[in-house]
Design a protein around this nucleic acid. Structure first.
Lengths: 231, 231
DNA sequence: TAACAAATATGATATATGTCATAGGGATAA
DNA sequence: TTATCCCTATGACATATATCATATTTGTTA
């Protein structure tokens, strides 16, 4: 991890308007003074499960995974998260420690704002408060839906769900570069690496998708949707 | 369902203070005018998946389940919810339709507040806004954690998790009356009814729990916790 | 660049879980 | 009250998924 001092980048940041558009100059100044920009390399851990929360974090660039590690050292992924999302999934006002570890899947830029400063602004600006909490709520709902859909399906349905989720929600394109390994994909849908690979191979052999390393293209949406529904 | 006109009950309601403690007299009046109290009998559906949201709902008494029904008519439970929780799990400000159906597990009293009135008060009172959104966030986090823990475990671990959750979090007592059938328990942990019953029987035969119909007592916390960890 | 570790891939086999069948008990409605 | 339906329960068997073994390919680091 290294700290970025490229202050200019803040002015042009898309999230400045998106998140902090409702702030007065003084409030913005308060946030900005409490702000640090950090860059994490692929594989670096951003926060660890059970660590105390003292900052509000949001993703400016890159991609991260939320996960927990079990007694046998196996990781279980809760979700993957894209720019604009928050690294603090859980309610930063009602809990004091992280529930999940967060790790960078690629070079990732994170903005860190001291929680005290954020709370001060939230208490004084209800528009801002609503905006932040709405976003957290929305992200939480998406995580709930994804976990629910995954847990009620069998392996083919789970893989189909993730492929459609990535194509439709994340990349908005039937062809995309999957940002995680097959192993991580398995950890995300609670299946073994081997069975995850086998299922992808089966989809490929059946002409439902094409695969070239990490680049996946959905060729037959209808059949994939059918697997999603019945599996 | 029947509508209750027992207005006096509102004055002594524990949730009045808990939720609406920050409101001015005028704000409270606004909410109260937009409020209806409804009583649902066991098995009655309170809201249906995909219906538009036009009210904020909270549970005053009773117990409900959140669920979805699949193509084959099989239900899948997301969670069960206790008094003080909201029936609107998802972010009522960022979405327009329910994601899940909600059904009463026992006689249940629900307070319904028109969303327009609630939004008006939220916009003018940031303390109240924070209180409401904090609660929703907290409930969402609990749902996320439960679903995550369930999906990463095998059947014994899942049953152990639910038993400990009910004993520790909901009833705060090693002996409790389980509020759902074995079938619903299976639907909650994404397992078949038969295997759910088999696992409970196994725990009983091993002396880990005792069971007498719906009344379950955890006899050996240590072993159950061990199953939770390793399963 | 070479050496090594990790990722992808597939087969054989073991284990976990689901499905089907059956039966008694208890709740609910006519 | 009886009749019916659902819940609880258990066994036998089928299917889904995990585990173990092995090989090739890819990516990372010395």
């Amino acid at each position: 991890m290294r700290i970025s001092y490229d202050i200019k980048s803040c002015v042009s940041c898309v999230y400045r308007q998106m998140l902090f558009g409702d702030l007065s100059d003084r409030e913005y100044e308060l946030i900005n003074e409490a702000r640090t920009e950090k860059i994490f390399r692929k594989g670096e851990v951003i926060v660890k499960e059970n660590e105390p929360i003292d900052s509000f974090l949001y993703l400016r660039q890159g991609l991260v995974k939320f996960y927990k590690t079990d007694e046998h050292g196996k990781d279980h992924l809760l979700s993957i998260t894209k720019p604009g999302d928050f690294v603090n999934l859980l309610n930063i006002f009602s809990d004091t420690n992280y529930h999940y570890s967060v790790c960078a899947l690629e070079e990732t830029m994170v903005c860190e704002v001291k929680l005290d400063a954020l709370k001060e602004v939230i208490a004084s600006n209800s528009k801002f408060a609503l905006r932040i909490l709405n976003r957290i709520g929305h992200i939480s709902d998406e995580v709930i839906l994804n976990r629910f859909e995954i847990s009620r399906k069998q392996i083919k349905g789970r893989v189909a769900y993730i492929l459609i989720y990535l194509a439709d929600q994340i990349y908005k394109n039937p062809e995309f570069r999957i940002p995680i390994t097959r192993r991580e994909l398995g950890e995300l849908i609670s299946m073994t690496t081997e069975n995850t690979i086998r299922t992808l191979s089966e989809f490929k052999n059946d002409g439902i998708i094409s695969m070239e390393g990490k680049v996946i293209t959905i060729l037959d949406y209808d059949r994939l949707h059918n697997i999603l529904k019945t599996g």
